[in-house]
Amino acid sequence: MLKISDSTTFYIVCPANYASGGPEDLHQMALALKETGKKVFMHYLNYDQEKFSSPVHKEYEHYDIPYCEKIENSALNVMIFPETFSIFIWEKNYSKIQKVIWWLSVSNFFASLKAWEENFKENPPKLKHRLLGKIKLPTIRNVKKSKVSHLAHSYFSVDFLQKNGIKTIGKISGYMEDMFLTGKDYTSEKKDIVTYNAVKNKDFLENIKKITPEIHWLPMINMTLDEVADCMKSAKVYVDFGHHPGREKMPREACLLDCCLIIGKEGSAAYKEDVPIKDEYHFEKTEQNIPLIVEKIKDCLANYDSKIKDFSNYKSELLEEKKVFYEKINQIFETK
């Protein structure tokens, strides 16, 4: 277990100048620690100084979290790594500090591991000389043997860690931005629109779109959070057949803004604990299911007023996420 005192400093490891669900969760954790009286810094890695004047992405400037390039490598302090940066837990500069891997996703862990494996194969002499054997590939076996704590983010990651014999110190999931947490009823603003994340839904959804020209499809791509919110406020249906490496934010945002959800079953979406929707809105991504998916989309458009009631419990649960997040932060990182 972690040993936390009034003298503990927290360092949150985060990719520099990169905006996505994971980095947002990392900034949320830093803010929660700061607001509960902890000393905390962001520790950005992979910062391109020639390209950017600051390692802080503009979307996270409002969190107002201080950052540092060097850390105090002390057993009093705590360093929190996203699973995609787990290779750095063996860095000599972090040898004494208490380390936590926060499993924001499972799929992205394996994607990053594959990238590091390829890097090691392509540049073995350079890497061996630079790392002096102090850094290992973050395979499950190596991570399991290391002296780090583990924190889950989704039931997908809880299940994955349990199956690999890795104990956790708890589970903390991020929450939605305040613009999605109004608790308002948006049903009166709805139009016959179906929206989706155009970046994470490609060929499979394109096949559905081709046979439904009568449906008004509205893709979300290169949008600000405000634009995403406006899009969801007007749409009756949100469709997502992406790979769901962790608890995806967009389906939760859509539910909070009163969209009916039609979701696939890849990654965390396969777990009812992560996506607690009725089976009639949950589909395997197969060609055979396309007619059923189209039928359900049209059902939601035609009978929206009754269908949206099926998501009221999930919306209520999501409105409590921020409160639960802070409770978990206090519980897991309590001063002993």
Rank of each mutant, 00 (worst) to 15 (best):
P15N: 05
Y63T: 05
I65G: 04
I12R: 05
I89H: 01
Y47T: 05
Q28A: 03
D25W: 11
Y94K: 00
Q28M: 10
E61D: 10
F41N: 01
A32W: 14
I12W: 04
E72A: 06
I80F: 00
E91C: 10
E72V: 12
L31H: 13
M29G: 09
T8L: 11
E50F: 12
P66M: 02
S7G: 08
F81N: 07
I12T: 01
I80G: 00
S54H: 13
T8M: 08
S7R: 14
S7A: 14
V78Q: 03
C14P: 04
T8R: 11
F85C: 02
F88V: 00
I71V: 15
E69I: 08
T84H: 03
S86I: 09
M42I: 12
M79T: 10
F52K: 04
W90S: 03
A32I: 12
I12Y: 01
H62Y: 08
S74H: 05
I89F: 02
D64Q: 10
M79P: 02
S54E: 15
K51E: 14
M29V: 14
N77A: 07
E24L: 14
H43T: 08
W90C: 06
E50P: 01
E61G: 05
V56D: 02
T9P: 10
L26H: 03
Q49N: 11
E61P: 01
I80Y: 00
Y60T: 04
F81E: 04
I4H: 12
C68I: 14
K51I: 13
S86A: 15
E91T: 05
S5Q: 06
P82R: 06
Y63M: 03
S7F: 10
Y18K: 09
I89S: 00
F85K: 07
Y94E: 00
H62P: 00
N77K: 06
Y94W: 11
T8F: 09
K92M: 08
A19G: 06
C68L: 10
A30K: 08
I65T: 07
Q28L: 07
V13G: 01
I80T: 02
F85M: 04
E24G: 09
K96E: 14
Y47P: 03
A32E: 10
G22C: 12
S53C: 09
N17P: 01
T84D: 03
K96N: 15
Y94Q: 02
F52Y: 15
A75H: 11
K96A: 07
C14L: 07
I65W: 05
L26S: 09
G21T: 08
Y44I: 06
K38S: 13
L31F: 12
S7P: 00
E59I: 10
V56R: 02
K38M: 06
S20N: 10
W90I: 02
S74P: 04
P82A: 06
M29D: 10
E35A: 06
D6E: 15
P55G: 04
P23I: 09
H43G: 04
S20M: 06
K34R: 11
E50S: 11
M42L: 14
V13Y: 09
T8S: 14
E72S: 09
I89E: 00
S54D: 15
G37A: 11
G37N: 07
Y63F: 15
M79N: 08
Y11K: 07
Y44A: 04
E69D: 13
E69N: 12
Y44D: 01
K51C: 12
S86P: 10
N93M: 12
D48K: 13
M29N: 11
